[in-house]
């Protein structure tokens, strides 16, 4: 498991986290290639179903990255997303997956550095958790 490279799906809001990721790009701030971004118009669009689907498909971690508290382009999509992430955590718990595998993050469009930094942190956290147990069972 020493060289386990997790696959992490990041649902990123077009108005903040996705822009922050582009910003990290223009600032050439490196972050782990493990993170794959799915662009959404608002984290309020992120469906628990898609979070589960990511895990079912083999993701080791998922995060939803929306705008800062109160900064949602659509008023409160980010707080709704945060509640759904909690719901997703409960579901994961119920089927025996670590709830830490899914997180909600907040950042603004200007936070290229924060995007890169959180990508590092989440990747490290998931690396410590080890592979998605579903995948492990699949392989064996």
């Amino acid at each position: 498991m020493g060289n386990f490279e997790p696959i992490i799906v990041a649902f990123c809001c077009h108005y903040c986290a996705y822009t922050a990721a582009d910003m990290a790009g223009s600032m050439r701030l490196s972050y782990p290639a493990n993170v794959k971004i799915v662009r959404v118009p608002c984290t309020g669009k992120v469906d628990v179903q898609h979070i589960l689907q990511a895990f079912q498909n083999g993701a080791d971690g998922v995060y939803v990255a929306g705008c800062l508290e109160g900064d949602c382009h659509f008023k409160n999509g980010n707080t709704k997303a945060a509640r759904r992430v909690i719901y997703a955590k409960k579901l994961l718990n119920e089927i025996g997956l670590e709830e830490e595998r899914v997180e909600m993050l907040l950042m603004s469009a200007g936070m290229g550095e924060r995007f890169a930094q959180t990508a590092f942190e989440i990747t490290e956290k998931i690396r410590k958790l080890g592979p998605n147990p579903i995948k492990k069972a699949k392989k064996s």
Binding site: P41, C42, G44, K45, V46, D47, F74, K80
Partner: peptide, 22 residues
């Protein structure tokens, strides 16, 4: 406005947000 909150919460999956369909 196209935020998609309704699409993500609809319990009947009757709403789709165009450009970001499920």
């Amino acid at each position: 406005h196209g935020c998609g909150v309704c699409a993500a919460e609809c319990p009947a999956k009757a709403i789709q947000l165009m450009q970001y369909e499920d």
